[in-house]
Amino acid sequence: MIIQTPETVMFWVLAPVAVLAALGMLLVKKAVHSALLLAWVMITLAIFYIAQDALFLGIVQIVVYTGAVMMLFLFILMLVGVDSSDSLKETIPGLRPIAITAAIGFGGLLTSLIGRALIGHSAAGLDQANSAGNVQALAKLIFSTYVWPFEVVSALLITAALGAMVLAHHERTVARPTQRESAIARFRTGSLASAAGLPGPGVFARHNAVDVPALLPDGSPAPTSISATLKARGDMLESAPFQLDVVDTTVVEEK
């Protein structure tokens, strides 16, 4: 079979980009960037599948891999901490040169073997196998020849779901405190002033914005009313200009 020009152009544009993205996965420091580059490689592979008459697999690749699997990866990355950047210094001395040498040897062997094995072969193409439609032909195979592996794979999926639940399960070592116990603990520990809850920002101040500390009844600002994040960022406003004794309270009648 002869491959048409559009596919050739598509291949020579996308294949180097995919390989570069995969190389970038190894070189970037942050795990999130690795995940985004991997998502790009997966989308490229989906395009390759569709170009190679594997329409169903191309769609499944986008839905399952870039949709579900990559989202799961990003979800876990956010859970573990996005800022946890990998230190790229090698902990086992000499590991990196050995790995790269072995990879060049392995890749060269694989490439030359494929090249030699396929000399003089021309691709048969899937026009005949896909004559009834790709999805129909695949369904026919899956539910006849491959029906037993299909059932085994479904059992595997259920087992994986159960395994994830068992691994994520968290055994409680102490009993959950009841509402009564937690209320008692709130009044017995710390100051009695904080037992009723912290004051909200802007209360009794002239501004009710979240970055203005609340004013206590005696007119002094309450720093506990501001979120610690705002305080650390330096986004907190001084409450002094908004205090009642500073503000001019004379009513001016406007016409």
Binding site: I3, V19, L23, A103, L110, G115
Partner: peptide
Amino acid sequence: MNPNNYLYVASLLFTI
């Protein structure tokens, strides 16, 4: 072009 080129890309990606 020959479909073999896809195989070369696959082997490169696997090695990486």
